[in-house]
Nucleic acid binder design. Structure first.
Lengths: 143, 143
DNA sequence: TTGCTATACGTAGCAAGCTACATATATTGC
DNA sequence: GCAATATATGTAGCTTGCTACGTATAGCAA
């Protein structure tokens, strides 16, 4: 296998394994990786944000977001609130009940990330990150 | 966001964007990224292999593989052949009709990979690959 | 040989990606 | 002001991941 193909294989491998591991860890709390990410991003913005903004930050397509939010709303962790003066957008607000869970999720995420990445020297991690960021931009330019 | 979290975000971003792009390119041929990968691996082994072997090579779980193979069999590109002396395993065989498509797919994959990765210097790509491989192993050890 | 365990494949059902299409509301340009 | 366009959200339906469970066959050990 050529180096480019092998790189792509490893990418897929790590991304999926990470998701699987984290989903398994969160299962007890009834959460998943993406839903946890959504909650964490929302917690950083107490004044709330629209679905569109959250969709961009999480880098998913909007139908995916709709379902994530449906699930979180069902769990009583967020609500979609009408925005005065803008009847097509919603403001997403974290329920007070969600705050302790968000702290737990954030801690679990950081701990797990560190457990998985602890053997990677910081300079190599930085370089790999930079390579990935460059590729992502290349992909998003459509080029 | 801390460097570890940012790294993980970039990982997900690149992996998904790559899959989306490649799926879109293959749509005209009625194929997808995983199915193409399956065909390419099978083409490298004219004597065929069992589902278990292919499952390991593609790094998916076996129910995922079952569905991929169902689709490919439906398209007439492969067949599951009984193995003499082993009544539980199947030998997967590529149909002769699939060979030209496999060549196309392999060429498309290589071309697209190169288009996306051409701006990454080989030494950096190698380093990033090595980082990813290390992380994957860490993840697979369960540690 | 008989029964336990391991292996190979399959089915069911869920989550999370995606595209394509639908609906309602804003915005903009004439 | 009205028509055309753009934006925000939602729905439908597909693929690909996964886990959990089912079934048949192989292998091994008492």
């Amino acid at each position: 296998m050529n180096p480019e193909a092998f790189f792509i294989d490893q990418l897929r491998r790590v991304t999926l394994r990470w998701r699987t591991r984290f989903d398994a860890e969160l299962k007890a709390q009834g959460q998943t990786l993406v839903r946890a990410r959504a909650l964490v991003y929302l917690a950083r913005r107490p004044e709330g944000m629209t679905q569109r903004e959250l969709t961009e930050q999480l880098m998913v397509e909007h139908p995916t977001m709709v379902r994530i939010l449906d699930a979180l709303e069902e769990q009583g962790l967020i609500r979609r609130e009408p925005i005065e003066g803008n009847r097509r957008a919603n403001r997403l607000i974290l329920s007070p009940a969600a705050l302790p869970m968000v702290d737990e999720l954030e801690a679990a995420f950081a701990a797990e990330a560190h457990r998985v990445l602890r053997h990677v020297p910081p300079d190599k991690l930085a370089l790999a990150t930079e390579v990935l960021r460059g590729i992502a931009e290349q992909l998003e330019e459509g080029a």
